[in-house]
C-alpha cells in the first residue's frame, strides 16, 4: 500500500516538475510577445496583430496549470483557521476532506471542460484565426492536473512523511 502511494506521489510530482518549466516558458513567451508589440508599434511603426491574443491564451493556460501546481504545494490562498484549532489526527482528516472537495471540483471542470472544448472546435479566434479549442483546452488540462494533485495530496496525508517539497 505504502509503495503504491509513494509511486503515485513520485509520478505526480514528476509531471508537476515538467509543468513548472512549461509555465516558466509561457511566462517568457508572454514577456517577449508584449515587449515586441510595443517595439513594433513605436520603432517599426507597424503594429503586431496576433501578440495580444497569443499572450491572453498563454495566461489562461498558465492560470489553469499553475492552479494545480500551487494547490499541490499549499500555495493556493485558503482560510486555514479550522485546521489550527483541531488536533493532529482531525487535521489530517480535514485535509483529506478538503482534497476530496477539490477533486470533486476538478472532476466537474474536467467533464464540462472537455464538452466545451469539443463544441468550440469549429470556432476561430479573431486575430490568429486558430481554433478556439486552443483556448478552452486549458480547462480540461488544468482540471486533470488538479485531480491528479488532489490524489497526490491524499496519498501524502496517508503516508507517515510530512509535507511535500516543491
Amino acid at each position: 500500500m505504502q509503495a503504491v502511494l509513494s509511486a503515485l506521489v513520485r509520478g505526480v510530482d514528476g509531471v508537476n516538475w515538467l509543468i513548472g518549466w512549461l509555465m516558466a516558458a509561457l511566462m517568457a513567451v508572454m514577456t517577449v510577445l508584449i515587449s515586441w508589440q510595443v517595439f513594433a508599434r513605436y520603432v517599426m511603426g507597424d503594429s503586431l496583430t496576433f501578440s495580444e491574443e497569443v499572450a491572453r491564451f498563454s495566461t489562461v493556460w498558465l492560470t489553469m496549470l499553475g492552479a494545480a501546481y500551487a494547490y499541490r504545494y499549499g500555495a493556493l490562498i485558503a482560510v486555514e483557521l479550522l485546521a489550527g484549532l483541531l488536533g493532529r489526527r482531525m487535521a489530517i482528516v480535514l485535509k483529506i476532506v478538503v482534497a476530496l472537495a477539490s477533486a470533486a471540483f476538478a472532476l466537474i471542470l474536467l467533464r464540462h471542460g472537455l464538452a466545451i472544448t469539443e463544441r468550440v472546435l469549429p470556432q476561430t479566434a479573431p486575430s490568429t484565426r486558430v481554433s478556439m479549442a486552443w483556448l478552452y483546452a486549458a480547462m480540461p488540462a488544468g482540471a486533470a492536473m488538479i485531480l491528479l494533485n488532489a490524489l497526490a495530496v491524499i496519498a501524502d496525508s496517508l503516508r507517515p512523511q510530512p509535507e511535500a517539497q516543491p
Binding site: 508599434r41 507597424d46 503594429s47 496583430t49 495580444e52 486575430s127
Partner: peptide, 8 residues
Amino acid sequence: GANASPMA
C-alpha cells in the same frame, strides 16, 4: 495607411 492594432 494607418499604424493599426487591435485593443480591448
